[in-house]
């Protein structure tokens, strides 16, 4: 039997933090992704260039640096903005919030491209059909585009979530008590790096498998109408 020297519970607690972090970042990232894709496809040139700058920067800068810059930089920026509005008190950004922001920004940049591809893959005729039926732009987006966009974007989003899950390991550098940090602490205490890092690897693998099963189920659900139709 493997001797965990009492660190088993800690790893479990870390796993929960990792899951929370991944889900919260997913939510932020999805919103940013849809916003980014809408901006990239809009007629507004400013919106397009902001979205382009956003995706280019995030995709070219290491996630580790993004996490560190957000952690140390976001407070300063937020406080500078707040003082413009006459608010001079201290604004605190917890490691969790910093982690979610950094990982959400990263996910959002990649998701922008996935959503854009999905929206573009929907035939233009459908939009015209919607307009012919007298639907407004928002209605077309919500009732025509969105449901189909999900189906087309799901495989891409699933892959991105797997990447996100692994990127959560980076937030251990800013003190979040995730799987990785718990493993580091256990290694520092027990001097058993192989055991604890391998254990961490297997926890991440299990999370990956669970995600894959879930995404597979969601894809099946999203495609159910399609299979019947054809």
């Amino acid at each position: 039997m493997i001797e965990l020297q009492g660190f088993g519970d800690q790893l479990l607690a870390g796993t929960l933090v990792t899951i929370e972090l991944a889900l919260a970042s997913l939510l932020v990232g999805l919103v940013l992704g849809i916003a980014g894709a809408s901006a990239k496809l809009s007629d507004n040139r400013i919106a397009r260039s902001i979205a382009n700058a956003y995706t280019t920067c995030i995709r070219g800068i290491p996630e580790l640096l993004t996490v560190l810059i957000i952690y140390f930089g976001a407070t300063t920026v937020l406080m500078a903005v707040a003082s413009q509005f006459g608010y001079d008190e201290y604004i605190e950004i917890s490691p969790f919030a910093a982690g979610v922001t950094a990982l959400g920004l990263t996910f959002g940049a990649y998701a922008t491209e996935v959503f854009r591809g999905a929206i573009q893959a929907i035939p233009g005729g459908q939009r015209e059909a919607g307009q012919a039926l007298g639907m407004g732009r928002m209605q077309i987006f919500l009732r025509l585009i969105m449901p189909q966009m999900w189906r087309l974007a799901l495989p891409g989003l699933g892959n991105l979530f797997l990447v996100l899950l692994k990127d959560t390991a980076l937030v251990s550098v800013i003190g979040l008590e995730d799987i990785m940090r718990k493993a580091n602490v256990a290694v520092g205490f027990t001097k058993e790096p192989f055991l604890f890092y391998l254990l961490a690897a297997f926890i991440y693998l299990s999370l990956t498998i669970v995600t894959m099963v879930l995404v597979h189920y969601l894809e099946k659900r999203a495609n159910r109408g399609l299979e019947r139709g054809i």
Partner: peptide, 15 residues
């Protein structure tokens, strides 16, 4: 909507 979620996630608690 993105701004709302982003601000909420930052959880700016004014300590």
């Amino acid at each position: 909507a993105a701004m709302v979620v982003a601000t909420a996630s930052v959880g700016a608690s004014f300590a």
